[in-house]
């Protein structure tokens, strides 16, 4: 587990305030704020086009906001250099998207082992550790398959294993069950919540589905690029 100690238990691990982001004349975010404490799962909900994904991209250091601040463990992400952001995403953050994050040419096991190899682990060691995570997520039997040969649910659970294999402090999940049916979606969410509860990993979950949002500890609703207090999502 890789938790950055901020020295203050009450301080949020990740905090965004008054984020504004404009894409070619469209205001994706118009003052969004969000706190994420260590180990908690927060669901970001809202209609399509409300800026959910942009908020996640800003928080994960993938996109720089036009104004506003993002702090991770006291570090200002909006002004950190690209190299540092890339390093953070490799070591402290885990990423799960709707689909497409697995490299189609690699086997499931190599896909999960990749972040460890990037972190400097040897191939054998990386594959061993990746294997234990795949077992935990119920995809050990699919380890030698390539992403195209797996079902959507298996691919997403493999993606979760890849996101969690480095022991991140925060997992960012953008519609992780968007392409799955209800049972596959339930299985992905159950294994995710159980795992992060055990490891104390915080999760930022972007979803438009209330059934998925219900796995979170609390909800932050976005409407037209502005965050509303809990419940004011409609």
């Amino acid at each position: 587990m890789r938790h950055t100690d901020t020295g203050d238990a009450a301080a949020p691990l990740l905090a965004a305030s008054d984020l504004v982001k404009t894409y070619g004349g469209t205001e994706a975010l118009r003052g969004a704020s969000l706190d994420l404490r260590a180990g908690e799962t927060v669901a970001v909900t809202g209609a399509s086009g409300s800026g959910k994904s942009t908020l996640l991209h800003c928080l994960a250091g993938m996109v720089r906001p036009d104004s506003g601040t993002v702090r991770y463990a006291g570090e200002r992400l909006e002004e950190a250099p690209e190299r540092r952001l890339s390093e953070l995403r490799r070591t402290d953050f885990g990423m799960v998207f709707q689909f497409g994050q697995l490299i189609p040419e690699l086997t499931a096991l190599d896909n999960v082992a990749l972040p460890l190899m990037l972190g400097g682990s040897g191939r054998t060691e990386a594959r061993e550790r990746a294997g234990t995570w795949m077992e935990r997520f119920g995809v050990w039997g699919q380890r030698e398959l390539r992403p195209g040969q797996m079902s959507g649910g298996q691919a997403q659970r493999t993606a979760l294993a890849r996101a969690l294999v480095t022991g991140p402090a925060v997992v960012f999940a953008d519609e992780p069950t968007g392409a799955l049916d209800s049972l596959a979606s339930e299985r992905v969410m159950t294994v995710l919540t159980q795992t992060v509860r055990e490891s104390g990993t915080a999760v930022l979950l972007v979803t438009h589905d209330a059934l998925v949002a219900a796995y979170a500890d609390r909800e932050v609703a976005l409407r037209d690029g502005v965050t509303a207090p809990a419940g004011v999502g409609v």
Binding site: A210, A214, Y215, E219, G231
Partner: peptide, 18 residues
């Protein structure tokens, strides 16, 4: 308010289920 209450209940039920 109703939406907040609904979501809170859904979180409880999800916790029971999982």
């Amino acid at each position: 308010d109703q939406r907040a209450a609904h979501l809170a209940r859904m979180r409880e039920l999800t916790a029971v289920k999982t």
